[in-house]
Design a protein around this nucleic acid. Structure first.
Lengths: 116, 116
DNA sequence: CCATCATATGCCCATATTGGCATGCGTCAA
DNA sequence: TTGACGCATGCCAATATGGGCATATGATGG
């Protein structure tokens, strides 16, 4: 193996939600279970397209599916999003500090120049 | 254009943090600014590799860089992570509800079977 | 049993990546 | 000025995707 591409999107949640349409699907599912075709329509994608995205979401555990007659209802299982929320939360203290740090840089630069 | 792959990773934060090594870089930078080589060493990657990941992070605005002599110090700018935190936070109410919903499914199935 | 509806898959194409290596470029020290 | 150091890039190889289409699968209703 000489080159590698990217970790399979099906392997982790971060990758699964990197796709805008998959995020939209998750948002839609907050309103409740929905069959594939309905999701496809509401999001303006083809049925195969929706199925493929749903498959990825299913494999990382963000959605569950349940057979209901001829349909297959997909439902949200947001537990997998918690790690992402927590990971980003670990940077919360830096959101506001960023500007201050930037200022610190500028100060540093000014002092450095004065010394030269 | 007949086929498309995936939105450029450099275009949004969700995609930028989909890469494990880039997440590690961000975590390391919480401790403060660091030159490329040092990051590469600590994460066990080559210098070009680190540079490439840093470039992606820079283009989505998650890191800033500052020249310091021969070195280039990279620093964290976590503001871009806030949207991700908020998006996932929008599912917080479903983290605990998931099990209940699952139970509801089981109940449904049982009733359905009894009817048959 | 048959036509139809609802989905999942397989295949092919064009693209986006990531990694390894070599190399260009600017900076600093002797 | 010259050589070493620190980084960014370019190029190539191997892969993972996402979309469009056709088609296999399954279940339902007559």
């Amino acid at each position: 193996m000489v080159g590698m591409a990217r970790a399979a999107t099906t392997s982790d949640v971060f990758n699964a939600i990197a796709e805008p349409q998959r995020r939209q699907i998750l948002v839609l599912l907050r309103a409740g279970e929905r069959p594939v075709t309905e999701l496809a329509q509401e999001l303006g994608m083809t049925q195969p397209g929706a199925s493929k995205h749903l498959r990825v979401l299913r494999e990382v555990g963000l959605v569950r599916d349940r057979k209901a007659g001829r349909q297959r209802l997909y439902g949200l299982d947001a537990r997998g999003l918690q790690p992402v929320h927590e990971w980003t939360g670990g940077f919360e203290q830096f959101w506001n500090a960023s500007f201050d740090r930037l200022d610190a840089y500028v100060q540093d630069l000014k002092q450095t120049r004065q010394k030269e």
